[in-house]
Design a protein around this nucleic acid. Sequence first.
DNA 1: CGAAGGGTTGATCAATTTCAATCGCGGTGG
DNA 2: CCACCGCGATTGAAATTGATCAACCCTTCG
Lengths: 240, 240
Amino acid sequence: MPNRFVKKMSRLAQLSTDDVATLTIATANPSNFGPREDIIREGDEPGPLLVIIEGWACRYKILPNGSRQIMAFMMPGDACDLHVSLLAEMDHGIQAVTAVTVASIARPDVQRIMDAHPSISRAMYTAQLIDAGIMRAWIVSMGRRSAVQRVAHLICELYLRARNIGLTAGDRFLLPLSQIVLADALGTTPVHINRVLKQLRLAGAMTLQRGSLTIEDPVKLIKIAGFDENYLHRRLRNVM
Amino acid sequence: MPNRFVKKMSRLAQLSTDDVATLTIATANPSNFGPREDIIREGDEPGPLLVIIEGWACRYKILPNGSRQIMAFMMPGDACDLHVSLLAEMDHGIQAVTAVTVASIARPDVQRIMDAHPSISRAMYTAQLIDAGIMRAWIVSMGRRSAVQRVAHLICELYLRARNIGLTAGDRFLLPLSQIVLADALGTTPVHINRVLKQLRLAGAMTLQRGSLTIEDPVKLIKIAGFDENYLHRRLRNVM
DNA sequence: CGAAGGGTTGATCAATTTCAATCGCGGTGG
DNA sequence: CCACCGCGATTGAAATTGATCAACCCTTCG
């Protein structure tokens, strides 16, 4: 029974039985974090590669004035920091959003595994590609979309990502993000997020209550978001 | 006389004479683009790896309502699309900002070179790491900084990048970005950029006129920007 | 039961957009 | 050589979005 990370890697590249076994063994040491607990703090020296097995986490930065910006959400199967091994010091933190199970792979092992398993290496490369695409989409959202569009767009992104890993049930899925967290991710205030959610609810597009999101009218939501399904989806040649 | 790309790669990893020769040969076929000319268009199938040898370019996306968001600036030595080889179709365009000289390396050659030259591979990996850090900083800027702070922060970033490749003269450097382009990059309007620039000028922090930027008071500028020099700089263990 | 952490709503304030007009400069055709 | 264009820069005034401030409610949990 492969864990979420192994599953994700298997989707991103054709893995042999040996590849799968290697990844499974490497991530067989999970540890747990509670909600709001820091997994990595800004200023830490980058340690092992961390992989989310269960739960949601986020990448964030606190600004001098105390406000917070979330730069990414991580869901089961996502790696936290594929690329930061060269940093002398983390320039941002990673925090559990829900209760989270994390597996860690020592850096030398990552290197060894990638060297010995080209398919795994390819899968990780692809994962980075997807992440970069998501970051670009966030920049576009923050720069040129209104608050309503931003919320709608983020929901579309998260819905598709959740669906990809089998976390959706029809038009509904568990979205364990408080309005405060949404505000920190979208660069607005909780108050405004609240009004926007109400607006989307009244428009009959979607409803978020007690951590459960229901998409009432997918077409309307996508239209509001100006969501380009392809950026996460069809435009990848083979994967997802 | 190595070109800008070779120089940059040499700064990012210890390259042998052979590595340098390989890169030099691979990028010895430059072609030119005029300002505002598209180097890659959204929807194109990703082709060879493109490398900026001279001039400035930008990565951008046009939204349904016609507005434009710039997601990155590329300066001499920067690669356009290290990672997009797996995309079936470009989800954004790349455009020349000034007159630009671009070298291209066919994808299979990229693969072959990286396989045969671990140091080059490492340098490219590091380049990606830096780019990801810049993207994260942009997300933070767009989400949580005011327009003045955003402009100041972008100028700090571009100044350091320019200085890294020897394009600055003391506190001055050529910044070939119109107020319109700055607005597209920072998610505001040209009118507002104009007022913000005036504000920064009157504050004695920096002056931008006719494509030339002068930093009058670096300390003040950095303070306004809330700029963390480390994110581009000291936090990398060995490089830059 | 009390406290804490969301969520909700109203009223006001501030930053930024939008609209509109003018200016200046480099290039071009007559 | 000069008038004319087109694009970017600049400025003012009005309109709008989103932020801030301030309550109050509700649920959960110890």
